[in-house]
Write a protein that binds this DNA or RNA. Structure first.
Lengths: 158, 158
DNA sequence: CTTGAAAAGAACTGCCT
DNA sequence: AGGCAGTTCTTTTCAAG
């Protein structure tokens, strides 16, 4: 797999930035934008994929369009946190379909969950019947998502 | 755009689930998996795109491969939260390149940020010189990401 | 819904500077 | 590294059942 440190030049970073916004861009289009031929752009993309920098391509599903208008972030603090209880918790939380993301974290909480629901009443059902009954749960804190903005993020020095 | 409620059948949901895992799947491959011809599968994908359910295609960039080994979630509570201070905060936070996601939330915190850094020393620099100096910041709480698992999430009833 | 075909475009290869 | 030319595959659309 990864054989060592990959160093990117400005063109690689421009390609990554463009593909982060629109994953459908073809090698030809990338080449047109950044002054490369189609094969040259294609070889750069393949190199980024082989290096593991481009880790995969995903579609973004708009949950609002599917009737899931509520997104809540839960911070979970476990009551007991031995090795076994972490595994129990992770296995159980993975079985809740409304949970989109499970993050094991260090700090005030032990886990952070991204949960989607149809509305607040639906969320309350998930919280009471699914989350609060998870094995080892101590305290749970919630934040309801209002708006979210994703940014390109850093790609290294230029 | 969206003209009303879109109802999906089991095949649509199967397609969405498959594309969430691998956005490169062709219409032909989707048809093979779910018992459709290539044009039939292609028409379903196009319908999902036109309905806005398939909101876009993105590449996933592995920040670890680029030397950003540390991801931290920050919960930010504002000291003053008038309309102006929200806008000031959002404009200023957007200018920090290390900030990947800005979420305006309701609850214990006002904003949640996803921040990436090269290491903890680098994160401390971002925290002290960039985040703590944002306009209107009250208290900041941090959780360091250990592991993260994304799941398909709910797509509606069957 | 299906199959088949055709046109366009994207991906990929080899060779050359 | 990059470009050019060519081949192959997929996508996209259409015709017809």
């Amino acid at each position: 797999m990864s054989v060592g440190p990959i160093d990117l030049d400005d063109t690689d970073r421009a390609i990554l930035r463009a593909l982060s916004l629109d994953g459908t861009l073809s090698a030809g289009e990338l080449g047109r934008r950044f002054g490369l031929s189609q094969p040259a752009a294609w070889r750069r993309v393949r190199r980024l994929e082989e290096a593991g920098v481009l880790a995969g391509r995903r579609v973004e599903v708009d949950r609002e369009q599917l009737g899931f208008g509520v997104t809540v972030f839960l911070g979970v603090k476990l009551a007991t946190k031995g090795r076994v209880s972490l595994e129990d918790f992770e296995r159980a939380v993975t079985a809740i379909p409304e949970v989109q993301v499970v993050q094991h974290v260090l700090g005030l909480f032990d886990y952070r969950l991204r949960v989607v629901a149809r509305d607040l009443a639906d969320f309350e059902r998930v919280l009471r019947r699914r989350v609060m009954t998870l094995p080892g749960v101590g305290s749970v804190e919630a934040n309801v998502l209002l708006t979210e903005e994703r940014r390109p993020g850093p790609l290294g020095h230029g």
